[in-house]
């Protein structure tokens, strides 16, 4: 049992809009062990980014954290005074956002911006901080860091800027790095390089990573554990092998099957998940996926608990898995149903 670095229990976040209360996150729980790379997968509107922001205490009005517990190394983060947050954020917990174009200050040099983090959190002097910035840039694979450090963000390409963001986030050796769709805005070739970089950096330090993405390919490449979110809830959690090879939830199965199959038979028709995600303003009770689920039955009108699924610490929110630890495919076989 690894030490839990971050635990999130029953997190609930709502946004108060004119149309009503949008329950973006309804009961989300997961844990991140030291050295884990946890992937949070979900579609837009599933609440994955809101969850990340709630962990960082970045939910602003009209959003509100309604309940739940967030603990970092056993210490509760909810209701922590801003003064303490400033010591934590960017230092022990760092975050990388999706859009590297807007998260850098356009009128300060790259070096200044990385050095700022080091000066504030590590108390380094101006010279020392700039020197360390050069080191960080080199570490994330930027050529000629001595020259680049004096340049401005507009002189960097998108991929380079995201490297700078990662350099900045890692400059204080955080215990936890939260990366919200870090490669979504980038080209695949650049994405592949960045994912390689993250994997490498991972091997050099024991920083735990929470990687938020909608791309199952990215998850397969870098994550050790996965949380699948849908409509503000966790549908399934487990190791990456559990999720891909011992799938427990019909939603996860649907996501995997809606991707084009690799290899020769590429002309096979895609199997989409019919319908669209539910409205989170005043959502109906019961399993949030039941409207689109091919296996839904009467019991789905009631919200299932997270049920044990075949694998280690593998759990899924689905009534089909009631009564014994097994995968979705096995559960369906028992019921005499074919996978649909």
């Amino acid at each position: 049992m690894t030490e839990q670095l971050l635990t999130v229990d029953n997190l609930r976040v709502s946004f108060h809009t004119r149309a009503g209360e949008n329950q973006a996150v309804r009961s989300v729980s997961f844990r991140v062990g030291a050295g884990d790379t946890l992937g949070i997968v979900g579609e837009s509107g599933s609440g994955k980014s809101v969850t990340a922001k709630a962990i960082m205490d970045l939910i602003a009005a009209p959003g509100e954290v309604l309940g739940g517990e967030i603990r970092f190394r056993g210490e509760s983060l909810r209701g922590l005074p801003q003064k303490k947050w400033r010591q934590l954020r960017g230092n022990r917990i760092a975050m990388v956002f999706q859009d590297p174009m807007t998260s850098l200050n356009p009128v300060k040099t790259i070096g200044y911006q990385i050095a700022e983090v080091l000066r504030r959190h590590k108390g380094l002097g101006k010279e020392a901080a700039l020197k360390e910035s050069v080191n960080m840039l080199r570490k994330v694979g930027i050529n000629e860091p001595e020259r680049r450090v004096h340049q401005y963000p507009h002189e960097f390409s998108g991929g380079m800027r995201q490297r700078v963001m990662i350099a900045m986030a890692l400059s204080c050796d955080p215990e936890l790095l939260i990366a919200d769709e870090p490669t979504t805005a980038l080209d695949v070739t650049i994405q592949a390089q960045l994912l390689d970089l993250l994997t490498q950096l991972k091997q050099q330090s024991d920083t735990a990573i929470v990687l938020i993405t909608h791309d199952l390919g990215v998850v397969a490449k870098v994550c050790t554990r996965v949380v699948v979110m849908y409509a503000g809830m966790v549908m399934e959690e487990g190791t990456v092998e559990d999720i891909f090879y011992r799938t427990g939830h019909p939603y996860t199965q649907g996501l995997l099957r809606s991707l084009p199959q690799r290899g020769g038979a590429n002309r096979e028709r895609l199997v989409p998940i019919e319908g669209s995600p539910p409205d989170l303003i005043d959502p109906e009770p019961g399993c949030p996926f039941r409207e689109r689920c091919p296996y839904a039955f009467e019991k789905c009108g009631e919200l299932p608990p997270m049920l044990e699924t075949e694998g280690d610490g593998h759990r899924s929110l689905c009534w089909l898995l009631e009564g014994g630890k097994r995968t979705l495919a096995q559960a369906l076989e028992e019921r005499g149903e074919a996978a649909r």
């Binding site: 994405q191 592949a192 390689d196 390919g217 990215v218 397969a220 090879y245």
Partner: peptide
Amino acid sequence: SSIPIPDPRAARTSSP
């Protein structure tokens, strides 16, 4: 070679 493959075993052995 940069396409992320949605299959952990294959994804980990490939390098871009």
